[in-house]
Amino acid sequence: MKHATLKIWRGAAGEAGRFETYSLPYEPGQSVLDGLRRLRAEVDPTLAVRYSCINANACKECVILIDGRSAYACTTRLEAREMTLEPLRNKAWIRDLVSDIAPPAERLLPPEKARRN
């Protein structure tokens, strides 16, 4: 059976952060978000990923860096190769693939200066 390998940036604000690599069975047609949700259910429930609408590309929340380019996890196909997933670089990093993407006026606390890189 073919596998998809996801190299995912892990850790939280205030930590160094690191890549961790996960392998999961490849099923044609699935999205990267499908793969991340499967990892959370079957491998590591602490993996932080942000999404609301799952498949409709309506909430626009699942934007991350996929192989270095910003893309929606819900509309990018999972592929039978290694894919590198990171949080956005231009937003404050919170945990794993989650960054603070809310408009500044819609946050509880003033925007953080800290970024991952």
Binding site: S52, A58, C59, E61
Partner: peptide, 12 residues
Amino acid sequence: RSLIGRGGATVM
């Protein structure tokens, strides 16, 4: 719990 105006059913 999500982003303002994005997380509910309306946007879908």
